[in-house]
């Protein structure tokens, strides 16, 4: 388990961490999610000891490590740009932490072989990092970090430098690896899809503060505020509330819409809107609408619903929020 209490970090006039407290349960895979400049990387690097805090306390497995250097924190760290030791072979890279610890040669050889097998790099022992692809380099970096049996594994945008396909593969692979190895893992990402896909807990950061912590489903369905809602998925403004576009139901008949809407407590009501454009995106259809108030928003409906509605540009429809959808009232202070 990792705890961070009242962490503060200032770079000149920029506040990277503003009184951040968070607990990361043992064995979990937690994502620190936020836009750039939100403090997520600073938080991760403070846990690693690569960055010093102005104030606050970091504990790893019950031990106060606030004043400890990275060497004595029992961590494994994976960098966005791999940080591969270029002049060493894959084998020597992975063995580095063990050889620093002066473990017996036979033990090192066995452990390195095991790890290379886990990360799928067996047969690459004698290659140099320059001879590996980006994905392979990052898997090597993971094996290197895991070799020292870290208390916690810290990943700083580990897939950020990879192309989309490799990224998706590695994500699935990391999830499976975590299920096998069970080491407490913290992953920094700005990609909400990655966070929702791979982690079992997400902490959303914004401007040096934690907005909400919880499991992915809770965060998606019951966001604490409009920032979390907007960062985890697309949103549409319906009346004075924020709704997910896929939670908007379109109806031709006002009476039907009103009757259905009455069943939804606290709903934003029924909004009359004109269809501006219908975009077919394969399995789903995006309907771009303009409300009476002039507010533009988009609804995401299924192909089947689109067929049934037979929507055309310029027609009038009635939009409402579906039952049990996530709805956030717009903070009047933030409304534009």
């Amino acid at each position: 388990m990792i705890t961070v209490s009242n962490a503060r970090k200032q770079y000149g006039t920029f506040t990277a961490l503003d009184d951040v407290s968070v607990e990361i349960p043992r064995g979990s895979l937690t994502a620190l999610l936020g836009p750039s400049g939100s403090g997520k990387s600073t938080l991760l690097r403070s846990i690693a000891g690569l960055e010093g805090l102005d104030s606050g306390v970091v504990t790893i497995a019950g031990r106060d490590v606030t004043k400890e250097p990275p060497q004595r924190r029992g961590i494994g760290f994976v960098f966005q740009h791999y940080a591969a030791f270029k002049h060493m072979t894959v084998r020597d890279n992975v063995a580095f932490g063990l050889s620093i610890r002066k473990r017996p040669k036979a033990e090192i050889a066995r452990k390195v072989d095991d790890l290379l097998e886990i990360v799928g790099l067996e047969g690459f022992q004698h290659r140099y990092p320059a001879q590996l692809s980006g994905g392979q380099r990052q898997r090597m970096a993971l094996a290197r970090a895991l070799a020292v049996d870290p208390e916690v594994l810290l990943l700083d945008e580990p897939f950020g430098a990879l192309d989309a396909k490799v990224r998706a593969d590695l994500r699935t692979w990391l999830r499976r690896l975590h299920d096998e190895v069970h080491v407490t893992t913290v992953l920094v990402t700005h990609d909400q899809e990655e966070a929702l896909d791979v982690s079992d807990r997400i902490a959303v950061l914004n401007r040096g503060r934690i907005e909400q912590v919880g499991d992915p489903v809770t965060l998606y369905d019951r966001p604490a505020n409009d920032f979390v809602m907007g960062f985890l998925g697309s949103v549409a403004t319906l009346g004075d509330q924020l709704v997910r576009p896929h939670d908007i139901v379109l109806t031709r008949d006002r009476a039907v819409a009103l009757a259905e809407d009455a069943k939804v407590p606290g709903s934003p009501g029924v909004i009359e809107a004109v269809v501006e454009r219908v975009v077919r995106l394969g399995f789903e259809v995006r309907v771009e609408l303009r409300a009476d108030s002039g507010e533009r928003f988009a609804a995401q409906i299924t192909r089947r619903d689109a067929f049934d509605l037979e929507l055309h540009t310029g027609e009038t429809v009635f939009a409402r929020a579906a039952h049990r959808s996530s709805v956030i009232e717009i903070d009047p202070a933030l409304a534009i």
Partner: peptide, 16 residues
């Protein structure tokens, strides 16, 4: 050119 990443990686792996 080499940057600080490799040195930081070494420190997280226990190197003085």
């Amino acid at each position: 050119e080499i940057g600080e990443d490799q040195e930081q990686a070494a420190s997280t792996l226990g190197a003085s």
